[in-house]
């Protein structure tokens, strides 16, 4: 009698659909498999954006899994019609690219969420988003997107794919069309033709560099990053794409964070840092912390934090990590 009951119980625990142990293990394995597949797709997309090809080796390296497992993984994905291999190179199919963009969107939206709403430090959000990006439906992502107020960039400044799966690529114009004395930031280096690309890299120019045109004539361009000069033929230079340095960075150069103000030292708010987004930014604005507002620290407590600042006739206490995101200019 007891024996029978015990057997039934064990059987139930093991085999009960959905909540039984075996069902759970199966669910878990399925989820793990999907995760690996999505990571592989993302890797392919990443490579394609960089203009390089993904290979089984590069997948093994990025996902940190054994070679034989990679082969099985690739076969599996190929069978689903998401990638196709040409020789050793792997390519995303249209369907595969759609899926990869979906995962990328999930990843970057989660990063935005973690940075804005959960206020995680920037160096932690990538790992956490990596864990959370899987197993989301389109509808769930749309909801997250709406709740975050439709952000267009992730906290690292990379574009978030839109709901139609379009990527707002970093725009920019060729430096040959750029005004001579205006500072610029390199946003894209055209890799075709390869020879020009090699020359650009050899000269020491890289993505994200801030440069200025020193001299331009039909024979050559001279660019400078403030320290060294780069000489390029116009045909080569036309492969460098630049855009304006964000206004916020220009402003920041002449400002100090609010935390550095001395007691009772009056200052004017220059701007809120770009890294303050979401709820915190809205709250700051609502409290009247808008550019141009006069502010000064008025109270500090035993621990040195929070400090209270007088803004628009009211005393408002802020923690130091938040105050550091408000840029001010002493007056």
């Amino acid at each position: 009698m007891y024996y029978l009951a015990a057997v039934i119980t064990v059987a139930l625990i093991l085999f009960l659909p959905r909540i039984g142990l075996l069902a759970r293990i199966k669910d878990y394995r399925a989820a793990k498999e999907r995760e690996q597949m999505e990571d592989a797709l993302k890797h392919l997309l990443d490579r394609e954006n960089q203009g390089r090809h993904a290979t089984p080796e590069s997948i093994a390296g990025t996902l940190d899994i054994a070679r034989d497992k990679v082969t099985r993984l690739i076969e599996n994905i190929e069978a689903q019609g998401l990638i196709e291999s040409r020789g050793n190179n792997l390519h995303l199919t249209a369907e595969g690219e759609r899926w990869a963009l979906h995962v990328l969107r999930a990843h970057r939206l989660w990063e935005r969420y973690l940075a804005d709403e959960a206020r995680m430090p920037l160096n932690k959000i990538h790992g956490e988003a990596q864990r959370r990006e899987h197993n989301f439906t389109e509808a769930q992502l749309n909801e997250l997107d709406a709740a975050l107020g439709h952000p267009i960039r992730d906290p690292h400044g990379d574009p978030i794919p839109s709901r139609e799966g379009k990527m707002n690529r970093a725009e920019g114009m060729s430096i040959t069309a750029w005004q001579a004395d205006r500072p610029a930031r390199i946003v894209h280096l055209e890799d075709e033709p390869a020879l020009a690309y090699q020359q650009i890299l050899a000269a020491g120019l890289r993505l994200g560099q801030d440069i200025r045109i020193i001299e331009k004539n039909p024979n050559r361009y001279i660019l400078s990053d403030g320290e060294s000069e780069f000489k390029l033929a116009p045909a080569v230079a036309s492969n460098i794409f630049v855009s304006a340095i964000p206004e916020s960075e220009m402003l920041k150069r002449e400002a100090i964070p609010l935390t550095e103000l001395a007691h009772d030292q009056r200052a004017q708010i220059v701007m809120l840092d770009d890294s303050v987004q979401g709820f915190t930014r809205r709250r700051f604005l609502d409290l009247g912390l808008t550019p141009g507002t006069t502010i000064f620290p008025e109270l500090t407590n035993f621990f040195g934090e929070p400090r209270a600042y007088r803004v628009r006739g009211t005393s408002i206490a802020l923690r130091n990590d938040q105050a550091a995101q408000i840029w001010v200019k002493p007056v």
């Binding site: 959960a118 206020r119 709820f279 929070p306 009211t314 408002i316 206490a317 923690r319």
Partner: peptide
């Protein structure tokens, strides 16, 4: 989780 935003008005 991390500590979140803190704004407090001192009336």
């Amino acid at each position: 989780g991390e500590a979140s935003a803190f704004t407090l008005e001192l009336p």
